[in-house]
Amino acid sequence: MSEDKNRYSDDYVVSLDHEWERRNWMNWLHCSEPELRHAVESVGSDPDNVRRFIRQGR
């Protein structure tokens, strides 16, 4: 069985769907929930882009 190496996994996106996911991302990125929501709305759910966006805002 072959794996699709180009497939994008949900493990690599910032998800705001569940409280525990938001909390984990806020802890990892050292930000508040409003900052996290604003970043995801502005640059999408890619963790690297979200991290850069939050760092630039400080």
Score class of each variant (00 low, 15 high):
residue 52 R to T: 14
residue 17 D to N: 12
residue 49 N to W: 04
residue 15 S to T: 14
residue 27 N to Q: 10
residue 32 S to H: 02
residue 33 E to W: 07
residue 2 S to C: 06
residue 42 S to I: 01
residue 47 P to R: 01
residue 24 N to Q: 12
residue 38 H to K: 13
residue 10 D to C: 00
residue 49 N to G: 13
residue 8 Y to S: 09
residue 7 R to L: 15
residue 27 N to D: 12
residue 47 P to M: 01
residue 24 N to H: 10
residue 20 W to Y: 13
residue 53 F to Y: 15
residue 17 D to P: 00
residue 1 M to S: 14
residue 46 D to L: 07
residue 31 C to E: 03
residue 44 G to W: 05
residue 46 D to Q: 10
residue 42 S to K: 12
residue 40 V to A: 07
residue 56 Q to C: 12
residue 30 H to Q: 14
residue 58 R to A: 01
residue 31 C to Y: 06
residue 12 Y to A: 12
residue 44 G to V: 01
residue 27 N to T: 09
residue 12 Y to Q: 09
residue 13 V to W: 01
residue 44 G to D: 06
residue 48 D to C: 00
residue 28 W to I: 12
residue 5 K to F: 09
residue 13 V to P: 00
residue 16 L to T: 03
residue 42 S to Q: 15
residue 33 E to M: 05
residue 34 P to M: 06
residue 1 M to E: 12
residue 38 H to P: 00
residue 54 I to H: 06
residue 22 R to E: 14
residue 57 G to A: 14
residue 23 R to N: 05
residue 45 S to A: 13
residue 16 L to D: 02
residue 39 A to I: 03
residue 53 F to K: 07
residue 31 C to K: 02
residue 7 R to S: 03
residue 42 S to E: 14
residue 15 S to W: 02
residue 46 D to H: 10
residue 36 L to A: 07
residue 35 E to A: 12
residue 40 V to L: 07
residue 10 D to W: 01
residue 55 R to G: 05
residue 13 V to Y: 07
residue 19 E to P: 00
residue 10 D to V: 05
residue 31 C to A: 10
residue 40 V to C: 10
residue 24 N to Y: 09
residue 52 R to C: 02
residue 5 K to V: 13
residue 36 L to C: 03
residue 40 V to Y: 07
residue 15 S to H: 07
residue 24 N to V: 06
residue 55 R to N: 13
residue 14 V to D: 04
residue 11 D to H: 03
residue 52 R to V: 11
residue 41 E to H: 12
residue 22 R to N: 00
residue 46 D to E: 13
residue 31 C to F: 07
residue 33 E to T: 01
residue 57 G to N: 14
residue 50 V to E: 09
residue 8 Y to I: 14
residue 36 L to R: 02
residue 26 M to N: 00
residue 12 Y to R: 11
residue 23 R to H: 06
residue 53 F to T: 00
residue 29 L to D: 01
residue 27 N to F: 04
residue 14 V to Y: 07
residue 55 R to Q: 14
residue 54 I to S: 06
residue 36 L to P: 04
residue 23 R to I: 04
residue 19 E to V: 10
residue 10 D to Q: 03
residue 54 I to F: 05
residue 12 Y to G: 14
residue 37 R to P: 00
residue 27 N to S: 08
residue 16 L to E: 03
residue 30 H to D: 15
residue 32 S to A: 06
residue 23 R to F: 07
residue 20 W to S: 13
residue 12 Y to D: 15
residue 41 E to G: 12
residue 53 F to G: 00
residue 50 V to R: 08
residue 21 E to A: 11
residue 52 R to K: 14
residue 37 R to N: 07
residue 30 H to I: 06
residue 33 E to A: 08
residue 55 R to D: 11
residue 54 I to A: 02
residue 28 W to M: 08
residue 17 D to T: 09
residue 29 L to C: 05
residue 50 V to M: 10
residue 14 V to T: 06
residue 21 E to Y: 05
residue 50 V to D: 10
residue 40 V to W: 06
residue 10 D to S: 10
residue 42 S to C: 08
residue 15 S to K: 06
residue 31 C to R: 02
residue 37 R to G: 00
